[in-house]
């Protein structure tokens, strides 16, 4: 009974509207729905991006008219020791963190996917919690943990006869602390994504493999890994973006504005912030930002390509 009037209305509407007007209405609706999104993206992403691009060819101290310098700011990426160190450190963190975090995410996800694992729900929440911790809090926790004199890490090392390590005052130690803090912070998020991917894998393949006598390693290598590779590709891109935005050193080494001992922890993200807002060298900071964006885009494409090509899993 209730459906009848609605049905009549729909038929009448359909009669009244010609096909072009229906299309126009749909288009109008689409525009109306997209408008707020486009406005926000334009205001907070497109305009700043274009402004950064403009600034990357200029020198500007934050007041007055920017001064055109052509490609000089990009040349600074090679010439300026701090910017060069930032790119090298970020490259190092990418080389270490992308494979390590991808592998760890897979391992943790597989563990958390075990039906027999006790307190599985609690563990999933616990592993995700660090991701919700602000970077500044994470930095405080880790700088205390790795403190040379009263840090818990050195305390534990001493228990097994290893002398205290000057973690935060040597380049290698400082980089290790940044990497470990980064892993601690983002592992929960990447694990959750990997776990989501794992749970979509068809169980019948595993059952068939088990019937055929495949052991656990063979099931992992021939079923889990190939089917999960699109998810792992996403995870590796997320880690890549995380490293390119790595700002932790700024909080871990506040006395040196995040540069760390001998510029060992300065990252592209830190150098952009310090150059723009502390040094007022907006042009060079913008050039670094543009270069990072471009390199990041290429790296992400490359990563996805490699994942697709590797062993022809995606073919």
């Amino acid at each position: 009974m209730l459906a009848r009037p609605a049905l009549r209305f729909r038929r009448a509407s359909e009669r009244e509207l010609t096909r072009p007007s229906r299309l126009a209405m749909q288009r109008g609706l689409l525009v109306a729905i997209l408008c707020p999104f486009i406005a926000i993206v334009s205001l907070f992403h497109l305009v700043p991006f274009l402004w950064s691009l403009y600034l990357s060819f200029h020198r500007w101290a934050g007041v007055g008219v920017p001064r055109w310098v052509g490609l000089e700011n990009f040349a600074q990426i090679v010439k300026d020791a701090t910017i060069r160190a930032a790119f090298l450190n970020s490259a190092l963190f990418i080389l270490v963190l992308v494979p390590v975090l991808t592998a760890l995410s897979l391992a943790c996800a597989m563990l958390l996917n075990q039906a027999l694992l006790p307190m599985r729900g609690v563990l999933r929440v616990l592993i995700f919690l660090p991701y919700l911790t602000p970077a500044i809090i994470a930095a405080v926790i880790f700088s205390i943990l790795f403190n040379e004199r009263f840090g818990h890490v050195n305390g534990m090392l001493q228990l097994i006869g290893i002398p205290p390590i000057d973690w935060l005052k040597t380049p290698t130690g400082a980089r290790a602390v940044v990497a470990l803090t980064g892993i601690w912070q983002v592992l929960g998020y990447t694990t959750l994504i990997t776990l989501g991917g794992l749970q979509t894998l068809p169980q019948d393949l595993y059952e068939a493999a088990a019937i055929d006598g495949a052991n656990a390693w063979q099931r992992f290598w021939s079923i889990t890994l190939p089917l999960l590779s699109p998810t792992l590709a996403v995870v590796s891109v997320i880690v890549l973006l995380f490293v390119l935005n790595l700002f932790l050193p700024y909080f871990l080494f506040p006395a040196t504005s995040g540069y760390g001992p001998e510029r060992s922890t300065v990252t592209v993200s830190v150098v952009q912030y310090v150059y723009a807002f502390a040094n007022r060298r907006y042009g060079e900071a913008a050039a670094v930002g543009c270069a990072v964006g471009f390199v990041g885009f290429l790296l992400a494409l490359l990563q996805i390509r490699i994942w697709r090509l590797s062993r022809g899993w995606m073919a």
Binding site: L168, A255, T256, S257, Y259, G260, P261, E262
Partner: peptide, 8 residues
């Protein structure tokens, strides 16, 4: 005098 010198 911190490692690296810094602002100090």
């Amino acid at each position: 005098y911190p490692s690296g010198g810094g602002g100090v």
